[in-house]
Design a protein around this nucleic acid. Structure first.
Length: 564
RNA sequence: GGGCUCGUAGUAUAGUCCGGAUAGUACAUGGGCCUCCGGAGCCUAUGACCUGGGUUCAAAUCCCAGCGAGCCCGCCA
C-alpha cells in the first residue's frame, strides 16, 4: 500500500517538475516525521538553476496536480520541502487489503529462483552461538525473499573433505564415542580429544594424512567412515536447526564436485587462462588487477584441489540452477569470498551475492570448536527456555504445566532469534549471559504479547457475538488509529527494502514498531468497551493488526501465539 | 606491516550505501498510570553521533589523517 502511495507521489512530483521546467534525475523522496513522504528536490536543483531552494520549491508546488482516485491526499510546502500526505482511501483500502489478502498481505511479485546457502558449519561438533547468527540471518532472509516473490532453495554445504573431518574420523577410531550425549556433542568431544592428542603426540599426524588421502582417492571403507561420522554430527545439527524453526531444502556434499569431475574441469579452464601461472608445481591465478594482492592457489603441487577450488565448482553448479545466488558467510570469509567472486567473474560465471556477518565472541575471546571453547546453541536455548519458563510461571501461575512448557519453548526461540536478527550483520557482538536471559527488553516477547492481546480481544468479541462484517472504516480517525493503519500499510515496503538490501534487521525493526503502534492504540482507544458505534471498525483494525503482526513474526521465523 | 569492517547517551542499538527540517528505540536510573478489552503494557524526565581537518548553502552520513576494537593476509577449511 505504501509502495503504491510512493509511486503515485513520484509520478505527481515528476509531472510537476516537468511542467515547471526542471530536470532532476533524483526526486529525493524520503520518509520524514513531518509528512508521510517528503521531497527535498528543491535543494538539489538550486545550484544547477541558480535560484533559491525556496523559490524553486514554490514553482514546483504551483504545478502540482493531484489526480482523483489516488492515495495522495494533498501536498504542502514547508520552506523548501515538499510534503505529501496520504488520503482517506489509503487508510480504508489498507484495511480492505489486509482482510482480503490475509497471510499474503505484504507479499510482492518478484520473479526468479534463488539459491541461498547458509549455516554450512563443519560437521565436527554442535552449532555454537556464532554459527546460529549465520543460520538466523540466512533463514530470515529466506523468508523475506519468499515474501518478495522469489522461489528460494536453501542449501547447507557440507565440507566433508577438510582435514578437520579426517581428524574426527581418526578420533572415532581412537577415542570412546559417548552415545549418551546428543550426537553432535559426542562428535565434538571426540574431535577435541583427537586434536589434543595430535598436538601432544605429533607422530599420529601422518595417520590423519593417510585417512584424508584415502578419502580423496575414493577408498570405499574410508568413504563409509566419513559418511557415518558426518551423518552423526549432522543429525544433531539438524535437530538444533529444527528446534529453531530453521529448515534446509538440500544438503550438498563438497566431495560430490571432486568425484563428479567438476573440480577437474574448472581447474583445467583456469590453467588455460593468461593470468594462470605455475609456481613450484602449484597452479595459481593472479588477481592484482581486481584489487586483490594475494595470488590464489587453485591446485596443489600434488595435483589435488583446495577448498576454494571446490567452492568454485559448487558455485558454477549453483549458477546453472538459479537466477540469483546468495551466500551467508562469517567475517573470516571476506577475503576468500572476494577471491572466489573475482575468479568466477574471470570465468564468466555469475557471482554470488555475499552477506557477511561479523563475529560473535565470548567475553574471554573468540570461540573455537577445536579447542572446545564455545557456547553451544543447545546450551543457550536450554538456558533461555528455563528462564522463559520461570517467567510464565510467575505471570501465569494458574495455567497448566503443558501450557507453561509450550510457552517457554516458543518464547525462548523467539527471544534468541529476535536478539540475533535485530542487530545489523556488520556489527561484531560479544555474548553476555545476563543479557541473553533478560526478558525485560523490548524484544520478541513484546511482539508476541501484542499478537496474543489482539487474539484475546477478538476472542472476547466472538464470545459476545460482536462482528465487523459491515464496518465503516471512515470512523477511524484517532491519531493512534491512523498511525497504526499507516504501520500496517508499510509492511510491503519493509519487505521490499529488506529483500533489496538483504537486511533482515529491517523486519525486526518493523515488527517492533508495529507492536508499538498496536499497544498505543490499545491503550488509548477502547475497542469492545467503548461506544457501540465504533466497535465494528475498531475490531476490524484489531483483526488487521493481528494478521500483520502474525505475518511479520512469521517472516522472522517466530511463533505468533494466541495466548502466552 | 598490508587489506576489510566497526566506533552514536551508563549499556545495547536504528539511521550512514543515496548528505537536508527537533538524531529514533530499548535496558538501566527518576516521576506517573489498572472500579477499564491481557500491566510481558502505557505516559513522562535525564542522557549520545571516537578525535582532528576538508568538501558543501547543509555532514552522524561523503573525503583525508589519527585513535580504539574485530577479522583476514597458508599448496588449511
Amino acid at each position: 500500500m505504501f509502495l503504491k502511495f510512493k509511486d503515485e507521489v513520484s509520478s505527481i512530483l515528476s509531472n510537476a517538475l516537468a511542467k515547471a521546467g526542471y530536470e532532476a534525475d533524483d526526486i529525493a523522496l524520503s520518509e520524514s516525521p513531518h509528512a508521510d513522504i517528503s521531497s527535498s528536490v528543491a535543494f538539489k536543483l538550486a545550484p544547477k538553476y541558480k535560484r533559491s531552494p525556496k523559490q524553486i520549491c514554490e514553482e514546483i508546488y504551483k504545478h502540482i496536480n493531484i489526480p482523483p482516485d489516488t492515495y495522495v491526499e494533498k501536498a504542502e510546502m514547508t520552506g523548501p520541502y515538499l510534503n505529501f500526505f496520504v488520503s482517506r482511501d489509503f487508510f480504508n483500502e489498507t484495511l480492505l487489503h489486509v482482510l482480503l489478502e490475509r497471510d499474503d498481505f505484504g507479499n510482492l511479485d518478484r520473479k526468479g529462483k534463488v539459491i541461498l546457502e547458509h549455516t554450512s558449519a563443519n560437521p565436527d561438533g554442535p552449532l555454537h552461538i556464532g554459527h546460529i547468527r549465520n543460520s538466523v540471518i540466512g533463514d530470515t532472509l529466506t523468508r523475506i525473499l519468499k515474501r518478495a516473490g522469489y522461489e528460494v532453495e536453501t542449501q547447507y554445504y557440507i565440507n566433508d573433505m577438510g582435514r578437520q573431518i579426517a581428524v574426527v574420523v581418526w578420533g572415532l577410531m581412537n577415542f570412546k564415542f559417548d552415545s549418551s550425549k546428543k550426537t553432535d556433542h559426542a562428535i565434538a568431544e571426540v574431535y577435541i580429544n583427537a586434536n589434543k592428542s595430535l598436538v601432544d603426540e605429533k607422530e599420529h599426524s601422518p595417520e590423519v594424512d593417510a585417512i584424508m588421502k584415502k578419502y580423496e582417492t575414493g577408498d570405499a571403507d574410508t568413504i563409509k567412515k566419513f559418511k557415518d561420522a558426518i551423518d552423526t554430527a549432522m543429525l544433531g545439527i539438524k535437530e538444533t536447526l529444527t528446534r529453531m524453526n530453521i529448515h534446509h531444502d538440500t544438503f550438498i556434499w563438497e566431495s560430490q564436485f571432486v568425484r563428479g569431475g567438476e573440480v577437474d574441469r574448472i581447474m583445467k579452464r583456469i590453467r588455460e587462462l593468461d593470468r594462470a601461472k605455475v609456481q613450484d608445481g602449484a597452479l595459481m591465478v593472479d588477481l592484482k588487477d581486481m584489487g586483490i594482492q594475494k595470488s590464489l592457489v587453485i591446485q596443489r603441487s600434488d595435483g589435488t584441489s583446495l577448498y576454494t577450488t571446490r567452492d568454485l565448482a559448487y558455485h558454477e553448479w549453483k549458477a546453472a540452477r538459479s537466477d540469483r545466488m546468495i551466500d551467508i558467510l562469517g567475517a573470516d570469509h571476506k577475503l576468500i569470498s572476494s577471491q572466489l567472486k573475482a575468479v568466477l567473474h574471470i570465468l564468466g560465471i555469475p557471482e554470488p551475492e555475499v552477506v557477511i556477518f561479523e563475529f560473535v565472541s565470548l567475553p574471554e575471546g573468540s570461540m573455537s570448536t577445536r579447542r572446545g571453547v564455545f557456547i553451544s546453541a543447545d546450551e543457550l536455548l536450554d538456558q533461555v527456555e528455563k528462564a522463559a519458563y520461570e517467567e510464565v510461571n510467575k505471570k501465569r501461575p494458574e495455567t497448566d504445566e503443558e501450557f507453561k512448557k509450550k510457552v517457554a519453548a516458543f518464547v525462548s526461540i523467539g527471544a534468541v532469534r529476535y536478539d540475533i536478527v535485530r542487530v545489523s550483520p556488520e556489527k561484531a557482538t560479544t555474548f553476555d549471559w545476563k543479557e541473553a536471559l533478560d526478558f525485560e527488553k523490548q524484544g520478541a516477547p513484546f511482539i508476541q504479547y501484542a499478537h496474543a492481546r489482539a487474539c484475546s480481544i477478538i476472542k472476547n468479541a466472538q464470545d459476545e457475538g460482536i462482528v465487523y462484517e459491515n464496518y465503516d472504516p471512515n470512523i477511524l480517525v484517532e491519531e493512534q488509529e491512523l498511525a497504526l493503519i499507516k504501520k500496517l500499510a508499510s509492511f510491503g515496503s519493509s519487505i521490499d527494502n529488506a529483500s533489496r538490501e538483504l537486511k533482515p534487521n529491517l523486519i525486526a525493526i518493523y515488527a517492533r514498531e508495529l507492536a508499538d503502534a498496536f499497544n498505543q492504540f490499545y491503550r488509548y482507544v477502547p475497542v469492545l468497551s467503548g461506544e457501540p458505534e465504533f466497535r465494528a471498525a475498531r475490531l476490524a483494525l484489531v483483526d488487521c493488526s493481528r494478521i500483520v503482526l502474525a505475518n511479520a513474526l512469521d517472516t522472522l521465523g517466530i511463533v505468533a501465539p494466541e495466548s502466552m
